[in-house]
Design a protein around this nucleic acid. Structure first.
Lengths: 221, 221
DNA sequence: GATCTGTATTTTGTATACAATTATTATATT
DNA sequence: AATATAATAATTGTATACAAAATACAGATC
């Protein structure tokens, strides 16, 4: 092993990743609006790449649920309905429940520390930007997911979160009292430390149900 | 609207679908063994198509979890470990539970009939080929999933089933008494008809837990 | 005037060609 | 003989070209 220059490092992402990021951001920021068609050629020209990586990026987005593919007709930005969002939350309530159960049974001391850290970080983020609060919230929940010791579960829950992403900022803006959310996080954390499965499950379910309520108010069909 | 002839119907599948089916079957039948590399060129030549549809098919299989993608090094048949399988079953136990809860709350009379039909069909399949039993089992569980009224849930559960597919036949061969399985299906069905959520959930969880046990015995790490 | 049909255009599906990276082999050096 | 290095081959990533299908539009027919 000679010099090991990090030639690549942060630098060379595959083009498909670059295109993916660009499209994803555009969709999340609603620069590409739901229902809008994504034409390979147009996007390729706009980004200065060929159609191939664009195609692959679009398919990645389709897996994530951000775009829908119509055979022989291309792709368009997914029109996520209120119903779909509620469906996702219904599943999250169940799987977040599973996650805390497993978490109580399997969490390691190091993971308990990470969880505490994440909980504090969320509390500290209150008052800062919505984006920052959102990020810390993700970290907190991710700490629980990871501590469940079930990799597939982590993957599914992350995917479900991604599908809600577009509405997340909107949703967070609706929340009046973030301290209340932080308290919920605190209760969940405490229950996990105490290995109190019952308490942990009911706390997390309540946590999600509040989200369902808020969504219900925010997005009237 | 004139005649509505189903001209297409069975006919023209996109090549990527053809390749996908071919590879999928090969993996499930273990003609392509876990760990084996999938080289685009080789497959393309073998199937008489170009690399483009092969690439897309491989990526579809990656979504399904049947192959893993290694950047700049191609794909290989996924090596599903005992742990992964148990992880999947852990999630299924939770989500099948959610499915029957929702099913009790939302099932329509027509769906109740379909459920009964599926339950009978499974019972009738006992003694026939393992493949047939497997198929009827899928139909039964699918009837429950569909009746949950949560599309995303149906999609996730189908995906989880697909990930177990390779082990399914092996697993079914282990089962001594299919009548017992049929009885479990019967209890679940009855609980759903009675809208007895508690009974339905405990029946389905027990049903899955038996699978976990069997897998535990079948695949010793 | 409405509808059908044929043509032109756009767009996706597929094939192929080229570039960049990784794996392999052979050679040289110690 | 073992290791390092250089040359070569194999393989993925990307671009481009061509084919087939879908769409849009214009003109013809009733």
């Amino acid at each position: 092993m000679t010099g090991e220059f990090e030639i690549d490092g942060s630098g060379f992402l595959p083009l498909r990743e670059v295109v993916y990021d660009a499209l994803r951001k555009a969709i999340l920021k609603e620069k590409l609006k739901p229902g809008e068609r994504l034409m390979e050629n147009t996007i390729a020209l706009k980004l200065g790449v060929s159609r191939t990586p664009v195609r692959e990026a679009i398919r990645m987005l389709a897996d994530e649920g951000l775009v829908v593919l119509i055979p022989r007709r291309g792709a368009q930005v997914a029109q996520i309905s209120r119903q779909e969002l509620l469906d996702v939350l219904e599943i999250r309530e169940s799987l977040d429940g599973l996650a805390v159960v497993l978490c109580c049974q399997r969490i390691t001391p190091e993971q308990e520390e990470l969880l505490d850290e994440a909980e504090r970080a969320f509390r500290d983020s209150i008052g800062k930007s919505i984006a920052e609060i959102a990020e810390k919230d993700i970290v907190f929940h991710d700490a629980i997911y990871t501590a469940s010791g079930n990799r597939k579960l982590v993957q599914i829950l992350n995917n479900l979160r991604e599908q809600m992403y577009r509405f997340r900022l909107e949703y967070l803006k609706q929340i009046r009292d973030f301290d209340e959310v932080a308290d919920e996080h605190g209760k969940i954390t405490a229950a996990i430390h105490a290995k109190d499965i019952q308490a942990a499950v009911s706390c997390i379910r309540e946590h999600i149900e509040k989200q369902i309520e808020t969504i219900g108010r925010t997005l009237p069909e």
